[in-house]
Amino acid sequence: MGERKVLNKYYRPDFDPSSKLPRIRRSNNRQIQTKARMICSNCSAELVIKTDPQNSDYVVESGATRNFDPWRTAEVEEEEDKEKNAEELAMKNRKETANLAALD
């Protein structure tokens, strides 16, 4: 089977790579915004998403909704931490009052 595997491609003598392959010129700054055009596999609707390299994120332009926001999870964790600290403080106060009542 190894003899059937082709490792090289044949290029005709009249092949001109400059006319066939487009050259992409980019600036030295790699922070370039690009648009990604996709199609839904279920309904064939077009989804357009734009990258946001400054924030290492993306922005939905049309055809989709965002179901996960990393900054929202951070806010939820902060709120949970505040609630947990308040509960711990309340439990500590209850124990102290119980100890004071037992000493009397």
Rank of each mutant, 00 (worst) to 15 (best):
M1L: 12
G2W: 06
E3Q: 12
E3Y: 14
R4H: 04
R4L: 09
R4I: 01
K5Q: 12
K5T: 05
L7K: 10
N8A: 12
N8H: 13
K9G: 08
Y10G: 03
Y10I: 08
Y11E: 03
R12S: 12
R12Y: 09
P13Q: 15
D14I: 09
D14M: 10
D16Y: 13
D16A: 12
D16R: 15
S18C: 00
K20T: 05
L21V: 15
P22Y: 08
R23A: 13
R23M: 13
I24T: 02
I24G: 07
R25N: 10
S27R: 08
N29E: 08
N29A: 08
N29T: 06
N29S: 13
R30P: 02
R30Q: 05
R30C: 00
Q31D: 05
I32R: 04
Q33F: 00
Q33V: 01
T34H: 05
R37I: 02
R37H: 03
M38V: 05
M38I: 04
C40W: 12
C40G: 10
C40T: 07
S41N: 10
S41V: 04
N42F: 10
N42A: 09
S44Y: 04
A45Q: 13
E46F: 03
E46R: 11
V48H: 06
V48K: 09
I49A: 00
I49N: 02
K50M: 09
K50N: 05
T51W: 01
T51G: 01
D52P: 03
D52L: 02
D52Y: 06
Q54T: 02
Q54M: 06
Q54A: 03
N55F: 09
D57Q: 05
Y58K: 02
Y58H: 08
V59R: 08
V59S: 07
V60R: 06
E61W: 08
E61S: 06
A64E: 02
T65W: 04
R66I: 04
N67K: 12
F68V: 04
D69V: 04
D69H: 12
D69N: 13
D69C: 03
D69F: 10
P70T: 01
P70K: 09
P70A: 08
P70W: 03
P70E: 07
P70V: 06
W71Y: 04
W71I: 04
R72M: 07
R72S: 07
T73E: 15
A74N: 05
A74W: 01
A74G: 00
E75K: 12
E75N: 10
V76M: 12
V76Q: 14
E77V: 12
E77L: 14
E80N: 13
E80Q: 15
D81K: 15
D81L: 14
D81P: 03
K82A: 15
K82D: 00
K84A: 08
N85I: 06
N85R: 14
A86D: 11
E87A: 14
E87H: 11
E88V: 03
L89V: 08
M91K: 15
M91L: 15
N93Y: 08
R94M: 00
R94L: 00
R94C: 00
R94W: 00
R94A: 01
R94P: 01
R94V: 00
A98N: 13
L100D: 15
L100T: 11
A102V: 01
A102S: 15
L103S: 14
D104E: 07
D104A: 11
